[in-house]
Design a binder for these strands. Sequence first.
DNA 1: GACATTCTCTGACTTTAGTCAGACAACTGC
DNA 2: GCAGTTGTCTGACTAAAGTCAGAGAATGTC
Lengths: 286, 286
Amino acid sequence: MSEAAPTDTLRRFNRTYTQRIGALDESFLGTGRPLGVSRLLFEVGPDGSGVRALRERLDLDSGYLTRLLRRLTDEGLVDLHPDPADGRRRVVVLTAAGRTAWRELDDRSEALARTLVEPLAPRQRERLVAALHTADLLVRAATVHLREVPPTEPVARRAAAHYFAELDRRFPDGFDPGEPDHAGTFVVATSDGVPVAYGGVRPIDRETGEIKRMWVHDEWRGAGLGSRMLRHLEDLARRLGHTRVVLDTNGTLLEAIAMYERAGYAHIERYNDNPYAQAWFAKALS
Amino acid sequence: MSEAAPTDTLRRFNRTYTQRIGALDESFLGTGRPLGVSRLLFEVGPDGSGVRALRERLDLDSGYLTRLLRRLTDEGLVDLHPDPADGRRRVVVLTAAGRTAWRELDDRSEALARTLVEPLAPRQRERLVAALHTADLLVRAATVHLREVPPTEPVARRAAAHYFAELDRRFPDGFDPGEPDHAGTFVVATSDGVPVAYGGVRPIDRETGEIKRMWVHDEWRGAGLGSRMLRHLEDLARRLGHTRVVLDTNGTLLEAIAMYERAGYAHIERYNDNPYAQAWFAKALS
DNA sequence: GACATTCTCTGACTTTAGTCAGACAACTGC
DNA sequence: GCAGTTGTCTGACTAAAGTCAGAGAATGTC
């Protein structure tokens, strides 16, 4: 059944979903405001937001967005301020009335979600929540965006910081990254602009590339992101002309070791003097 | 975590969904036709459809639907014929060009679904399919429609036929329903108009009501529909003034027996001469 | 400091989506 | 056979959603 065609299940679910829960969005209606305006108001959120960011998140034409915002300002729901950091940009903030209206939207959405969950018995409810949690994780994982980044770019720095922090947490004696070393080509996976996986390839010699700083965000474990990143880095190494990749790792990172083994990596002798490394791997690239 | 608030997971998923899978619907865009028209064309489907049915499925204003259909006929994609069974109704059928256009929509949707599933490794893909399958079942179950029906109404007859057919399949010596007996108040649960669960209450005396013909559609087992129907029937019995419900069942229906026990039913002595019954239950209604 | 680019905003549009009232034919129940 | 209902269609609307070109200020780049 699951063999048949995953797309069938997805499309069937899509149908069910748009018919029954799609109403979650339309619940924004009935507030006296059109859907688009409500959606915008909700997206601004209690903490405010930049106009630029809104345009990207909602994928709106700039002129159209201006007009939608005007409706909200006319209703006294939001205020527009220039961005102190960049005079061209503007920042939207909810007024007191806007916060009330926002809360109302939030309540409606919550109420609608409840009507969907309520008819189910506790056991079914748990199953539904678990299923949606898994689906959420995997759909997000599937739509993650992998791209090469200079390791000096902010996203890359943030990803690397996560990586180092995790090593520091997991190694019995902590971890000291030492001087930042930016040699190599790096790849970051982002979801909604947030880095969720990271890794790079550094050339050791003509044949050999070393895979560095493989990291997957805690909340994204178990979605296959690690293997996907690993495959991506292997492809990258191939493109860089390498015929073999190596990597080192610490003995405490058991899942990582298991993943390398699953991916066809073989244990080899120590090839570097990394004081934190306790296992070394290699794989031939075909 | 799942303890916290099921609605959080649902709402989070809803967000992920509208952003990433919601695009499945918009895959109908870019065909040179507006979304509404494409959606209608797709809904007509290769086998055609009644105008009435389309109106209900898509929840459209009748005047609006007529105009949308006119666009499709003008483009030569569908033909309208009067329904031979009812001169007021009309039936929509795809023309050859319409079938081509329909297939194009289907391909687009399929392609988009594939891009969503493809980045995942086989193991993750299976997990996603399983999760969506579960979610689909439970969302449908949660939005099932329970209502009282005269046992002579077509939906009720269909549900009862399913019930008798199942008994005939499961009892070692088959089952003969005998003369149709329509005494009692019956409840049918429907999803998209299809009966998925059925049951009724027949008064035995002032205090006691008997629960009859409890049935849940094969594909809907495990969604908690049985218990929900049972609770519904108990409420109904209470409303009818009963203080106690009884029921009989065959020993082969193990899940049913387990469910009755879970719901607080106690074994009692034989109270009727039903030749197929092998176990008798009772429960006091508070 | 010149030139290109980015960001917001305005004006002038079009299309899409949807509503409401009523006409008219076909059917249903009694 | 007649009253009431149902199903489709027309006409006359309105609001929502979205597009496109360009103006003008602020910023980045060399």
